[in-house]
Amino acid sequence: MTTILYLFNCILIFFFTIGLISSSSTQQRIYCVIKTFGKNLATRASTIHHTWAHRCDKHIFLTATNLTKWNNISLPILNLYDVSDNYIELSIKVFDALNLIIQQSQPYDFDWLFITDDDTYVIIEHLRQLLYYSIKPLAFGHLFVPKNGAPSHLSGGAGYAINTIALQRMLPNLQTSCPQWYVPGMEDVYISRCLQHLNVSLNGAIDGYHHQFYPLEFLNMYKMDIPKWFSDYNTLKSYQGFNCCSSQSITFHYMTREWMNFIEWARYLHDNE
């Protein structure tokens, strides 16, 4: 119990007292696409819908399921029908969704498309501070650089943002622009390969000597409880304690619903009670 209370206080201090979340923002419009599965609509997706997602300019939950099972769920959903609702075909699901999004009438009603998982907590204010208008095709996220020499790629769990200039390079459709990666596989790797093929710059958002997108949860970073795969892909030194993470952190992956609700209360609802 003592350990739990200690960690609870650490989270409270980091996300509230230290002021990790800033209120300033830019005018860039962000369209958030949250990858989820039918079985998670009433749990993870619902929690995100009622916490950070409403700070996007618009958001939608991407799934491929029989929605008649979830007709009592009131969420903005983009449901796909020609793909299975599983991790194996997650890359196909994201490519299918991108096809629908890029073929919308232009000019788009957003400036950046942000894609992330249903167990990721996002500090939208900090994401807005990072993103800016550019005539160059850009993508931001946590950039993995494998030590085995494989090409770098953006982390899917930490989330990645793509500007509309980059999205336009995918036209007329991804079957034409990136056919070799429009197959089942690792979604973040294949999306990154497609972007690189289209000469889109992949940027690992770095604040001094810290990342801003984290493919691990906050407590893992705080305690330096870091798996080997992260060390094999990471480009920066890890630090213990409050120095673990940027004061402009944007995302943390593998966050439980309980932690999401707690952070929401600590920062946004605490003063209203």
Rank of each mutant, 00 (worst) to 15 (best):
T2F: 02
T3L: 10
I4F: 03
I11Q: 07
L12H: 15
I18T: 14
G19Y: 10
L20E: 11
I21Y: 07
S24G: 11
S25D: 11
T26C: 01
R29A: 10
I34P: 05
G38P: 09
A45P: 08
A45V: 08
I48L: 12
I48M: 01
H50F: 15
T51E: 06
A53W: 05
C56V: 11
C56L: 05
D57T: 02
H59I: 06
I60L: 04
L62W: 01
T65Y: 04
L75H: 00
L78M: 01
Y81P: 13
V83R: 00
N86E: 11
E89C: 03
E89V: 06
S91A: 15
K93F: 07
K93S: 00
I102A: 06
Q103N: 13
Q104S: 08
Q106W: 07
Y108T: 00
W112A: 08
D117S: 06
D119A: 09
D119H: 02
Y121P: 14
I123P: 09
I123D: 02
I124T: 15
L130S: 05
L131G: 06
L131W: 00
Y132V: 15
S134C: 04
S134R: 07
I135L: 15
K136F: 15
K136Q: 15
A139Q: 10
G141A: 13
V145P: 00
P146T: 01
P146H: 11
N148M: 03
N148Q: 05
A150W: 11
P151F: 00
S152R: 06
H153K: 13
L154Y: 03
G159M: 10
A161M: 04
T164W: 03
I165H: 05
A166I: 13
L167Q: 12
S177C: 03
P179L: 13
W181T: 02
V183F: 12
E187W: 04
E187F: 01
D188H: 14
Y190K: 07
Q196W: 02
H197D: 13
S201G: 09
L202P: 10
N203G: 08
Y209L: 12
Y214T: 10
F218I: 04
L219P: 02
N220A: 14
K228V: 05
D232S: 14
Y233N: 15
N234V: 07
T235F: 09
L236A: 00
L236P: 09
Y239H: 01
G241F: 04
F242E: 05
N243W: 03
C244S: 04
Q248I: 01
Y254Q: 08
M255T: 10
M255G: 07
N261G: 12
F262R: 08
E264H: 11
W265P: 05
A266I: 05
A266C: 12
H270C: 09
H270W: 10
